[in-house]
Design a binder for these strands. Structure first.
Lengths: 155, 155
DNA sequence: ACTCATTAATCAGGGCACTGACTATTTATA
DNA sequence: TATAAATAGTCAGTGCCCTGATTAATGAGT
């Protein structure tokens, strides 16, 4: 009795959206490099020499996941990892030439894919789409660290 | 050179949205039962006696993933699996009493969680949110079986 | 200097998600 | 009826994603 309608569940919709994206990425962008891997390449193009933790922060991956993604990128020789001489705990990350080349190539394809993906929406709707998703994500993320507990409490 | 802004990439946003949801689910709904597992329970409340493949279709999981999810639910004794006497390939799935109880309990919690999750949006915005995500997902899903190769050349 | 807390990274373990290859059963057809 | 095609489910392999425990290096306070 009383089954719910999953199409009114944002979590379910989020999962479906990601699956749809995964599918399109695979056919239109790359079967080798995944979307999270591209995000890491992109972060290192923007800020070469970041350490692992910070890259994870930039692209939204926790310490364990980022370690795995980086090890795969290293296996493909798309980036290098060097101990920080200033701080022996850190590894500093840099793209190889091959890594930069790959990033440039995929940048074009992702742009095309995004157009197809968002094709069903008008320009205005696309703006709203970004805005709404971002606001929901940010708010939920904000609940992580009670820097600003919404449920009262001050002290 | 030329790093892109990931906040304009729907795939990246979709991933972040799902992560945000995962987090909230974990804290507000259950640490034992996951959102996909709940979706399976829900499908079987709506239509008892479905076979594996069809359940997967209902909740948007492929044959391999649904098999894993079901085996976990069976390990927790939330559902039963019986060979279809009419068709020896199929397994027919039914919730146990415990499964029904769990579904009922989680239904309440997910409703509360969805309210928090969507809290940042007005009622109108929530409607738009569902509509936009759904349209994008459906369209991408429709591209699954491309009549023509979209990998290379377009004409 | 020495202890102690913090921090970067790793590891173990569990779960989700896909593809491609394989088994077993059913069904269509030659 | 014998065989071929289709279908349900499993298995192997890869990758993403999280938590909790551990290790190594740093930095602070005494």
């Amino acid at each position: 009795m009383a089954a719910v309608d999953l199409t009114t569940h944002p979590g379910h919709l989020a999962r479906r959206l990601q699956q749809a994206h995964y599918l399109l990425w695979n056919t239109m962008v790359s079967e080798e490099i995944t979307s999270p891997q591209f995000a890491v390449l992109n972060a290192l193009v923007a800020e070469p020499g970041l350490d692992q933790r910070t890259v994870g922060e930039r692209v939204g991956l926790d310490r364990s996941t980022i370690a795995e993604v980086i090890s795969r990128l290293m296996r493909r020789e798309l980036l290098d990892k060097v101990r920080d001489p200033q701080d022996g705990r850190r590894y500093l990350l840099h793209l190889t030439d091959e890594g930069k080349r790959t990033h440039r190539k995929l940048t074009l394809r992702t742009a095309r894919m995004n157009q197809v993906f968002l094709g069903p929406l008008s320009a205005d709707e696309q703006t709203v789409f970004f805005d709404l998703i971002q606001r929901v994500s940010d708010a939920a993320e904000g609940l992580r660290n009670p820097a600003e507990p919404l449920a009262a409490t001050r002290t």
